[in-house]
Design a protein around this nucleic acid. Structure first.
Lengths: 361, 361
DNA sequence: CTGTTAGCGCTTTCAA
DNA sequence: TTGAAAGCGCTAACAG
């Protein structure tokens, strides 16, 4: 059914080597012969077999991109950046969704390595350092995406500690002194870093983190988890029972019973889910509770209460990562590892309140 | 660098065939030998070469999924459905973004065919019928996604004409008699179908489409285009000049000068973009203008004015499509082509106004 | 149970 | 400028 080079060759009355040359080194073939071969390819609907080609070449013209959540607009925007750059360089992108799950991630990494992709871009679920190092050692370049890397590898990231810091500083500046931190698993580096930034902001303000911050940790970084966090904040009585059943973990750094006046969610999906639930519960934002998110996804600005957020250069992040990866893949000699760190930026909107709305400083 | 089966074989003191058996038919190998081979694989960090494997097998364990816009949550939700089913069946998914662009789509189809993917799921930009037929004839199963197909192929879709109809009927029921239809390129089947449904709704109400509907056609189905459409609606004086510079095409079916009291956007991204611009311009929704979207993406419910929309079973759509595709791929004999058509459903929210807000019926 | 071997479809020398 | 032939790494068929 599928015509191969041999069929094309015999139809055109040439050797397979010549057909190959038409494909890969057209200038080496006499125009007339080339035309004959091309006609034959057309007639037979010939599509070269990528596997065979790669088998010889050793590597494919594909990149692997592994993200934590394809339904999060942050990652699709990053993916667009990657894809645009890759496409221009003649590469296709295999987009994989780890769904923040360890085993899915591992499975995809395996598939990508078996496919001998030219390189892998990944936002890892865990500190997968050793496994990623092994992959690199076996010859597949790896670039860390949205995560600062160690030496010996490229990485592209936004300064998450700084991001967490400006988010919480913003709330402190507005006068808030009891702030909830709604965060995903600390195993995810971004979560850990943004948390550290939050703590730092409080310390720098000369305040006691234990008195100011209440931590609510949810098992995923999506809207559903954000809604669960809202319930946690609204019904303190439910907290302890809620924990076991929902997988929630809440470390009440702040004295129990003292409700927060503001919330910092470590991404916008959490914030949007929380916002929705607050709306249903009749909690006024920012009046009763100020909210700050992270990522500044496009939908943040359109929310019922426009969401204050920490902006990251998503598209640029993707582009830069792809550029680093392809440089490493295509020019292994000249390549030197680099670590890009972009600066986050606060975008203040209504959800945090333009005017102080809580305990005056 | 990358260890091959030969290396594993010699380290384990067996033949390559045995190594292959350990991988593909472990039960044929004596446990002790198997253990030795596995140890060798571990020690060498052996990763089987997918290209070589596929070369023999003829086909890979990957599916191709080509969507119109990865940044549209509708498609990422569909992708999740595809991915979950594929993953369970042992397949990986290559997600490609055609960006509603003809040439990108063509390029990706080519890549997928060269990779000898097991099958292709696609929401085509144009009526790519002939090209897709050729691909199928060459042996790669193709399933149309979110689009009704003709005989001789599988397809999974939602009844878009019906969807357009219920959207506009809803507005008519609310008393609106001047409705703008903000639509993407009619070459995209969904756009054409939803438009037909809109016309039908008006006709069924015993009204004259030319008097009721004003069409605004934008070149893409995203938020930016929605904002442009809003400008078009707001500033009728700009209409004619605006056309040339923005690529807008507006067919004033309704008498010029009579402003619409409602808008039907053929997807939620358009609606959200439009909504944002209306907000900036101080237009009250639904008071001054009622708005209905399409897809019911998660963010629609969270918009500043919660968006009335036509819900599609996104995840199910993806799952069903993957199921059809893999059935065709894995059981070509028994397989018979099927056409699933899901029913759309109106989700009424504030943006269309619960109470009649326009010209009384 | 294990070893040997013939390709899968293509690219790339090396000759002609 | 073209033809012939040697593999790339693996699987499957067959022999032992």
């Amino acid at each position: 059914m599928a015509a191969g080079m041999k069929d094309v060759a015999s139809l055109a009355g040439v050797a397979v080597g010549t057909v190959s040359n038409v494909l890969n080194h057209p200038d080496l073939v006499r125009p007339l012969t080339r035309a004959r071969v091309e006609a034959a390819m057309e007639e037979l609907g010939f599509i070269p077999n990528g596997s065979a080609r790669q088998l010889r070449a050793g590597r494919s013209r594909c990149l692997g991109l592994v993200v934590l959540d394809v339904t999060n607009p942050f990652f699709t925007e990053v993916a667009r950046g990657v894809e645009d750059y890759a496409q221009a360089a003649g590469y296709a992108v295999i987009l994989c969704n780890s769904d923040e799950a360890d085993d899915k991630e591992r499975r995809y990494l395996r598939v990508l390595e078996e496919q001998r992709v030219r390189g892998i871009l990944i936002t890892p679920v865990h500190g997968r350092a050793p496994e990623l190092r092994r992959i690199r050692d076996r010859g597949t370049p790896v670039v860390l995406l949205d995560r600062p890397g160690s030496a010996g590898q490229c990485s592209v990231a936004v300064d998450d500690r700084r991001g967490g810091e400006i988010a919480v500083s913003h709330l402190l500046d507005l006068g808030h002194r009891r702030i909830a931190l709604v965060n995903g698993p600390l195993a995810i580096r971004q979560c850990a870093d943004r948390r550290r930034g939050a703590l730092r902001a409080v310390e720098r303000a000369g305040l006691d983190p234990a008195a100011v911050l209440t931590e609510v940790t949810v098992p995923a970084m999506n809207a559903r988890a954000g809604a669960v966090a809202a319930d946690e904040l609204l019904g303190p009585g439910l907290a302890s029972t809620g924990l076991a059943s929902t997988g929630l973990a809440s470390t009440g750094l702040a004295p129990a019973g003292r409700k927060p006046t503001a919330v910092f969610c470590t991404n916008d999906m959490l914030a949007l889910g929380l916002l929705r639930r607050l709306g249903q519960a009749g909690v006024a934002v920012p009046g009763d509770l100020a909210v700050v998110g992270y990522d500044d996804i496009e939908f943040a600005a359109d929310a019922a209460v426009p969401l204050t957020s920490v902006r990251q250069p998503k598209y640029q992040l993707g582009r830069a990562a792809a550029e680093l990866l392809l440089d490493e893949a295509d020019r292994p000699e000249e390549h030197e590892h680099r670590r890009f760190v972009f600066k986050p930026e606060l975008v203040a909107r209504a959800s945090s309140g333009e005017t102080a709305s809580a305990v005056p400083a």
